[in-house]
């Protein structure tokens, strides 16, 4: 178990098994960040949504803002892995990219789908 004590504005970390644990503990207390992952709708794709991620962790409190920005978006198929979906979310300067490829459906398939959807 990780233990973090704060004294006189400094952090003392105990119980970390490696250096990653040390930096994780410091980050988690001072500036908690998370990698944001969600899905974005795809138009004309073999799948209706594509999974996306922020390329780096973003501040925890920016997550709601980032999610609501991503909710406004859609992408057109084909989508490639690591294609940029948004240049920057929630004013962080951190980009959001696709994490899985989505192939485009053939033109006739698309017509068929639209018909079925009414």
């Amino acid at each position: 178990m990780l233990k973090v004590r704060t004294a006189a504005g400094r952090l003392a970390v105990e119980g970390n098994a490696c250096r990653r644990g040390l930096s994780y503990a410091q980050e988690e207390v001072l500036n908690p960040r998370r990698v944001l992952t969600t899905t974005v709708p795809v138009v004309g794709g073999k799948r209706p949504v594509v999974p996306v991620r922020s390329v780096a962790p973003i501040p925890k409190e920016s997550i709601p803002q980032a999610l609501s920005e991503l909710r406004q978006l859609f992408v057109r198929a084909p989508v490639k892995v690591h294609q940029v979906i948004a240049q920057s979310v929630a004013g962080t300067g951190i980009a959001v990219v696709a994490t899985w490829p989505v192939l485009a459906i053939e033109a006739e398939e698309e017509v068929q789908r639209e018909k079925e959807a009414g």
Partner: peptide, 9 residues
Amino acid sequence: ELTGPEYAW
């Protein structure tokens, strides 16, 4: 730290 889809890819 990869996501599941990236890891599979």
